[in-house]
């Protein structure tokens, strides 16, 4: 069994660089949004993307050309369509691990890990990105992109440090589920990773969880005595909550330490950390 796996892995390893050198612009299908982001950053336009229309409304950056077709849902991508497209490579997450045998009949498949409680999600996505670049023979591009991102975030960190004279306030990033319930982004969520890179501390400690957030009643936000609260847009029922006296008497609202973060995806690939960092830095113009 072990040997079989080794042989199989060897085949796959041989196949991939070969694939990268042989084909100038490989035909890649991405069945999860992290990989779409990574592919686009490597300068490769995927031949199909799962839930492409939703990617365009929720993830937005990097921009996915309108010509890229929808490959069906992320849970159940359309096999018929994939077979018709004849891709060179299919990228999936463990969510689709069980249909891998079927997908493998269409094209070679690579699995990239997604969000877990156990490991650092930011480093995981960084590794995924570099690995993808290596497979597609674009390591240089990848390293340039990562260096640019690191420099960009470092610059943001400096400007925040300057603005607050080395004493930036603590930050809590939330997303409203309804006027009465709110998700608080916690350890190992991408917003918290962005905060760490910007040198910002969380003000509301939450336990670690797989998707990095907990849902609590809105009144719980009253516990946040110091620092700023940033909420991720869109929040359709904003008026319903913000017009209440209870909200207006929250310490951070009274002192004007609340701001909106422009719509940004929180469960993306490595560059969603950069997007979040930019959005957080922007939101902190007090």
């Amino acid at each position: 069994m072990k040997r079989l796996r080794a042989v199989w892995l060897g085949c796959l390893l041989m196949l991939c660089p070969l694939l990268a050198t042989a084909v100038e612009s490989p035909r890649v299908v991405a069945l999860s949004w992290e990989m779409v982001e990574h592919l686009l950053k490597l300068g490769i336009t995927p031949v199909a993307v799962a839930e492409a229309p939703d990617y365009r409304t929720w993830v937005v950056h990097p921009e996915l050309p309108d010509s890229v077709p929808d490959a069906g849902s992320r849970n159940e991508p359309n096999m018929d369509l994939l077979a018709q497209l004849k891709p060179d490579l299919i990228l999936i997450t463990p969510l689709l691990e069980d249909i891998r045998p079927q997908l493998q009949r269409i094209a070679p498949v690579v699995v990239y890990g997604d969000f877990t409680q156990a490991q650092n999600n930011r480093l995981l996505q960084r590794r995924n990105f570099l690995d993808l670049a290596w497979r597609l023979g674009r390591v240089e591009v990848a390293q340039q992109q990562l260096a640019a991102m690191d420099a960009h975030i470092a610059g943001l960190r400096r400007s925040i440090a300057e603005r607050f004279a080395g004493q930036p306030p603590k930050v809590t990033v939330v997303r409203f589920a309804s006027p009465t319930a709110v998700f608080i982004m916690g350890p190992n969520s991408m917003p918290e990773h962005a905060m760490q890179l910007l040198g910002l501390q969380p003000a509301y400690p939450t336990p670690a969880s797989r998707w990095g957030s907990v849902q609590v009643p809105v009144t719980e936000l009253g516990q946040i005595k110091q620092g700023v609260v940033l909420y991720i847009e869109p929040f359709a029922q904003r008026e319903r909550l913000f017009s209440t006296r209870l909200w207006q008497r929250m310490p951070f609202v009274e002192e004007g330490r609340v701001a909106a973060i422009r719509s940004t995806w929180t469960h993306g690939g490595i560059f969603c950390v950069e997007n979040l960092a930019v959005a957080i830095a922007q939101a902190m113009q007090f």
């Binding site: 589920a177 309804s178 009465t180 319930a181 009144t219 909550l241 209440t244 006296r245 909200w247």
Partner: peptide
């Protein structure tokens, strides 16, 4: 599912209130 998210808390029967509305 994306658009319906707002109603899912409602669907589960949350009694939480933020005013007398």
């Amino acid at each position: 599912h994306q658009q319906s998210r707002g109603v899912s808390v409602w669907g589960a029967g949350d009694l939480g209130q933020i005013d007398w509305y």
